[in-house]
């Protein structure tokens, strides 16, 4: 769906500024329906890279292809049509504060010259999809961050794009809201088969929704592959650092266990009683509630106390509880 071929981007020197190489020798292929993450520190060139895909930036060398069209060769007019099929959401949402939620979502449809009746039908449907029907007449200033990003998502999807670009879309949100926005993006990807390309500096985002990932440093892609591979076997020092970082930040220290989905409700119930007064916190890290799914939990806090709590909650956990320790 998206192909970046041997991309280079340099900013020429100007009065008072030296020339800067933003991107060098970047090759990426992103399949249709994929959720692809690009991770790197600020200044690594991810933002520029993302903007090449919808032609907001143009490369100094190389080609950008989206859905069989070479973006880098399009005329202004054709580029505008191409952009209508490439949605984009932003870290700071970038909504028009002079327009209501409804009118914000209508914006791209007006731009595309859609009829009034079609705009109405589309906007109503989109607001329902992102769960903001009851806020249709509110102004962005009256919304929470998560709601603003939902408006941003609805707006980006208005013209049924094939690609959705996410520019640090959850970086301005708190962890809970981040989770709900990522969940929404994942659902949309599953429902519509839209290709998601997202840039972030948070490994936890990549880990929770991406299938594939590319790691960038100083304008180059230093590592790429499936998220599992990269997490299991990070080669480059920066990647290792990023992987390590999420383990420290996101998951805390404590006892990690995995239980079968069927046993989860009972375990959760008894664990909550068992940890009371022990200064141990139970957190769900990941999992799927289907037949063969498993849930990974962490009992955060003192290891000894956590073990005691687990034994109390599920005395025969090894044999019957379907619970195992995660290293």
């Amino acid at each position: 769906m998206i192909q970046l071929k041997d991309i280079g981007k340099t900013y020429p020197p100007r009065q008072g500024f030296d020339g800067v190489t933003a991107l060098e020798g970047v090759n990426l292929t992103i399949e249709k329906g994929d959720i692809f993450g690009i991770i790197g520190r600020s200044g690594a060139g991810k933002s520029t890279l993302l903007r090449l895909v919808n032609g907001l930036e143009s490369p100094t060398s190389g080609q950008v292809w989206v859905d069989g069209e070479e973006i880098t060769r399009l005329e202004e007019r054709d580029l505008r049509f191409a952009r209508q099929k490439i949605g984009m959401i932003f870290q700071h949402f970038n909504l028009l504060w002079s327009r209501t939620v409804w009118e914000n979502v209508a914006f791209p449809l007006e731009v595309a010259g859609k009829s009034k009746t079609e705009i109405k039908r589309k906007v109503d449907g989109l607001l329902e999809r992102v769960g903001l029907t009851d806020r249709a007449n509110a102004y962005p200033s009256q919304l929470s961050g998560g709601q603003k990003q939902r408006v941003g998502i609805a707006r980006a999807l208005a013209n049924d794009p094939k690609v959705l670009l996410c520019d640090e879309a959850t970086s301005a949100l708190d962890p809970e809201t981040t989770t709900s926005i990522l969940k929404l993006l994942k659902e949309i990807n599953r429902e519509t088969g839209i290709t998601l390309l997202l840039i972030t500096h948070e490994m936890s985002v990549v880990r929770s929704i991406c299938h594939r990932v590319a790691v960038m440093e100083e304008g180059r892609v230093i590592e790429k592959g499936t998220v599992k591979e990269v997490f299991r076997n990070p080669v480059h020092p920066l990647t290792r650092q990023l992987v390590h970082q999420t383990e420290e930040e996101g998951e805390g220290k404590g006892l990690r266990i995995r239980c079968e989905a069927g046993n989860f409700p009972a375990l959760w119930h008894s664990l909550r009683q068992a940890v009371a007064g022990r200064q141990v916190t139970v957190r769900v890290l990941e999992g799927e509630l289907n037949e063969d799914g498993g849930i990974v939990l962490v009992l955060e806090g003192d290891l000894e106390q956590a073990e005691k709590a687990l034994r109390e909650a599920a005395p025969d956990w090894v044999e019957e509880g379907g619970i195992s320790l995660v290293p």
């Binding site: 919808n54 907001l56 505008r80 049509f81 191409a82 952009r83 209508q84 490439i86 984009m88 932003f90 700071h92 970038n94 909504l95 028009l96 914006f107 791209p108 731009v111 595309a112 707006r155 013209n159 670009l165």
Partner: peptide, 15 residues
């Protein structure tokens, strides 16, 4: 006017 909003409008294909 926020530059980000102008960028958003351009990303949606505005003239």
């Amino acid at each position: 006017v926020d530059k980000g909003v102008v960028e958003a409008a351009r990303s949606m294909g505005s003239t």
